[in-house]
Simulated assay, not measured.
Amino acid sequence: MIRINLDRQLVEKKITSKSLSSQIGITQANLSILKTGKAKGIRFETLDKICQVLECQPGDILEYVDDLDDER
């Protein structure tokens, strides 16, 4: 399972979702879908823009979590 840590990055960088969506050129609704983990995928172009704006690495936003760890 991939966990999305975008909210954490927004808080650390003191950037609102509205500001981020505007800067990377996606709607607030689509950003919300990504933040909640409901997105089926993310374009590398979008991930690149997010990382540029937040000055972070993809691994700061996306985290692999073993499904078995959640069941234990």
Score class of each variant (00 low, 15 high):
I26K: 01
D7G: 11
K18V: 11
Q23D: 07
L6W: 08
L6Q: 08
I4K: 00
K18M: 05
I42N: 00
D60N: 12
S19F: 09
A29E: 13
L54Y: 04
K40V: 10
L31I: 02
L20D: 02
D60K: 09
N5L: 08
G37W: 07
Y64K: 11
G37I: 11
S17D: 02
T16S: 14
A39H: 10
R8A: 11
S19H: 10
L10N: 00
E45G: 05
L10C: 05
K13G: 00
I61Q: 05
N5C: 06
L54P: 00
L10F: 03
S22Q: 15
L10E: 01
S19C: 07
T27P: 09
L20N: 01
F44Q: 15
R72L: 13
R8Y: 11
D67R: 15
S32F: 01
V65Q: 10
S21T: 04
D66G: 06
L10K: 00
Y64R: 09
I15H: 00
I4V: 11
Q52L: 06
T27Q: 03
T36L: 13
S32A: 09
K35T: 11
K13W: 02
S22K: 15
N30V: 10
K35N: 09
S32Y: 02
Y64G: 00
K38I: 06
K13C: 00
K38E: 03
E12W: 08
D48A: 08
M1F: 03
L47G: 05
E63A: 12
T46C: 00
R43Q: 09
Q57M: 02
G37K: 09
R8P: 07
L20A: 03
S17Q: 10
I42F: 02
D69T: 14
L47S: 06
L34M: 08
I26Q: 00
D7M: 15
I24H: 07
N30K: 07
K35H: 07
Q52H: 12
S21L: 04
E71P: 09
C56P: 01
S21A: 15
L20F: 05
I2P: 12
V65M: 01
E45T: 11
K18C: 09
C51V: 02
I33A: 07
D7Y: 15
G59W: 03
G25P: 04
L62N: 03
E45I: 06
R72W: 14
L20R: 04
K14N: 13
D7P: 08
